[in-house]
Amino acid sequence: MPNKKKHNIVFVALILVLCICFFTNISFGSVAIPFKSIFNSLIGNTLENTAWNHIILQYRLPKAVTAIIVGSGLGISGLLMQTLFRNPLAGPFVLGISSGASLGVALVILGSSVFGGFFAILFASKWGIVLAASLGSFLVLLAVTLVSIKVRDTMAILIIGLMFSSITSAIVSVLSYFGSAEQLQQYIFWGFGSLGNLSWQEIVILSIIYLLGLLISITTIKSLNSLLLGENYAKSLGVNIKKSRLLLITATSLLAGTITAFAGPIAFIGLAIPHITRQIFNTTNHKTLVPAVFLIGAIVMLVCDSISQLPNTQFTLPINAITSLVGAPVVIWLLVKKRNMLF
């Protein structure tokens, strides 16, 4: 089919763009390093300038890898949510996954002064934050799912997700009222999102969970396609709805939950990337959409991160602000130009 051929060409182009973005992302930073040295370093040669060597291998490379994981993971979890809830506005943010993570982190960082003891010990390690965020997002997603089994209306589910966000942000406000200035600052910095704070060791943990989530996503591709018809049709095609729903939710909380835990809440990627992908590929087949969302998510995240670096300056803008600046207009454009967000 001609369609398939066209898709293959776009895929090759996207992979090339991804490579270019990856290289460009590593090339930019507060210290100017010549392209040649970066290339040399990336192919495994040790540079004479040890500082450069350290910057590239211990700072920029892990940041670029994190960007790829974050962009692709959030994009795919958004795609899964949009199809599961059959709502173009679904995404990790709207369904309250990120606010669940925020609540968990707030409890650990800010709550340590209120609750003391146990939380104070947890607070001591970065893993405490990661654990709290994962647990928070999983619990909120679980709650939304339980509600979604009772309430059939997908619009109601989204509103419930928003209500969960309100409740968590209210609790966070209360906690921050009692927290110290130092703790508050730490929480706010987590909320900015950051790709650059991860060590290789943390990236290994993140990638293991991420790969697990990715693997589960791939196994759900077939049922995702029939879910687009509606649940009753999917069931009539032999899909085990309960099992698929559980798999999809698990994959999403693994992907979005862990990413939020490590990199902070990154807005709009989960919502906007699937829509951008559908504009480019114009298909409903998740066999094409999942890898396409992977590539486009990674590319967009690398670009956003490059922008936030403000090349060759000392400043780094919060990544969350950049993704919102890119993502929100995309959603508005889709609504205005395309009238309805087909999915």
Binding site: G230, S236, L237, G238, T284
Partner: peptide, 23 residues
């Protein structure tokens, strides 16, 4: 089983399709 039934009985429902972006 769900799958065996799917090979024996197919449905056309009144409910609108969740997505109309299919070819």
């Amino acid at each position: 089983s769900g799958l065996n039934l799917a090979k024996t009985l197919s449905l056309v429902l009144t409910e609108p399709l969740a997505s109309k972006n299919f070819t």
